[in-house]
Write a protein that binds this DNA or RNA. Sequence first.
DNA 1: GCCTTAAAGCTAATGCCATTAGCCAAGCGG
DNA 2: CCGCTTGGCTAATGGCATTAGCTTTAAGGC
Lengths: 198, 198
Amino acid sequence: MPRAGLTPTLVAEEAARLSDEEGFHSLSLAAVAKRLKVATPSLYKHVDGLAGLRREVALLGANGLGERIQRAAVGRSGPDALRSTAEAYRRYAHEHPGRYTALQRLPLLAGAEPVLTADPVRVLAEVLRGFGLPEDQLVHAIRALRSALHGFVDVEAHGGFGLPEDVDETYALLVEGLVRALRQWPGSAGRTNDGTEP
Amino acid sequence: MPRAGLTPTLVAEEAARLSDEEGFHSLSLAAVAKRLKVATPSLYKHVDGLAGLRREVALLGANGLGERIQRAAVGRSGPDALRSTAEAYRRYAHEHPGRYTALQRLPLLAGAEPVLTADPVRVLAEVLRGFGLPEDQLVHAIRALRSALHGFVDVEAHGGFGLPEDVDETYALLVEGLVRALRQWPGSAGRTNDGTEP
DNA sequence: GCCTTAAAGCTAATGCCATTAGCCAAGCGG
DNA sequence: CCGCTTGGCTAATGGCATTAGCTTTAAGGC
C-alpha cells in the first residue's frame, strides 16, 4: 500500500478547507482524517492533536486575512484606505468563515508567538497612519477599529441581523462612522480629507 | 432515596453558573449533572439535550443582559444614556462570560422565538431615540452600535488586547467615538447635546 | 389511610471522538 | 542489497451524548 504522503501543511490546509465549508465547530481530527483518506491517529504524526490543528487553522486565517487587507490598502491612504481595508476584511470573513472563527481564539493559545507573515493588526495600524492621530492614541484607535469590524462580521456570521434592511448598507454606514470618529479623535491633528473630495 | 427535585429552571440556572465559572466551552450535560449530583440521563427529563441546555443558557443571558442595560438607561437620554448603557453592557459580559458567549448563538438557534422578557436590541433602540436619527436610519444605527459594543467585548474576552495600554480607556474612547458618529449620522437632525455640558 | 399512576431518576447500552501504545512496512541513505 | 527512520496502521482506553427501558417516588382520587 503506497503512503498517503501527508505533511503538516497539507493537513492544516485540509482542516482549513473543512472549517470553511462545514463550520469551525465541525472541525475534528476524525473529519480531517476521513477527507484525507487516512486513519485518525495518523494525523498525530503531523499535528499536535486537535488543539494543534485548530491553532494551525487559526494561523492560516490570520495570515490570509492579513494578506488580503494588506493588498486592499496598498496605494491608498486615510479614509480611502480604511474603506478598502474594511471591505476586504469583511469579504475575507465571508469567504473563509471557518478560518476567521479560528483566528479569534489565536491570542488565547499561549506559547511562542508563531510566524505571522502578515499580521492583520499591523496592517490596520498602517491604515490609521493617514489619520493624523497622536502617538499615544494609536493603540486605542486600532482597538476601536478592530472592535467595530470584528463585531459587525461576528454578529453577521451568527445571524444577528434579522431585519430585512440591507446589511451591506449598514456596513458602509458603520465604516463612514468610523471615518468620522477617527477624523475627530481626541487630540487629533484635526480634519483630514474625507476621501470623497479631491 | 429521595428525589433530587430538579426543574427545567434549576437545571438551566446551574448550567448558566457553570458556563460563567468554567467557560461556555466547558458546558456539558455530564458536568451539569455532576454539579446537581444526578446521573447524566436524568437531565433529559428537564431539558432538550445539550442543544436545549445551551439554548436555555443563551436565553438567560439575553434576558439578563437586557435587564441590566435597561436599568442602566432608565432616567437618562442621548449620549448620557449611551455611555451608561455601554458601561453596563461590558460589565455584564465580564460578570457572565458564559451566558454572554451563549447569547451570541441565539439567533442561529432557529425555531419559535421564545420569551425574551427584556430584549437587549430593543433597549439599544430606545437608547438611540435621543439622537434624532431619521426613521430609516434607526436599524442601521442599532446594528452599528451592537457591532461596536459586541466587537470590543468579544475581542477583549479572547485576550485580543495584548498591549499594556489601559483597556478601560480604550472602551471610553470607543463609546465617545460612537457618540460622535451618531450625532453626525447621515440624515441626522444635527448636533445633539453631547452630555458633557448643561 | 390505601392505591393508582404520571413522571423523576436510575442503569445499561450504543456510538462518536480524542488520545496513547505499539506494530509494520515503505522507502531513503549507505 | 541492507538497515533504519518514520509514516501510517490497528487496538485499546476513556469521556461525552443519547436512547431504551426499569424502578420507585409521591401526589391525588377514592
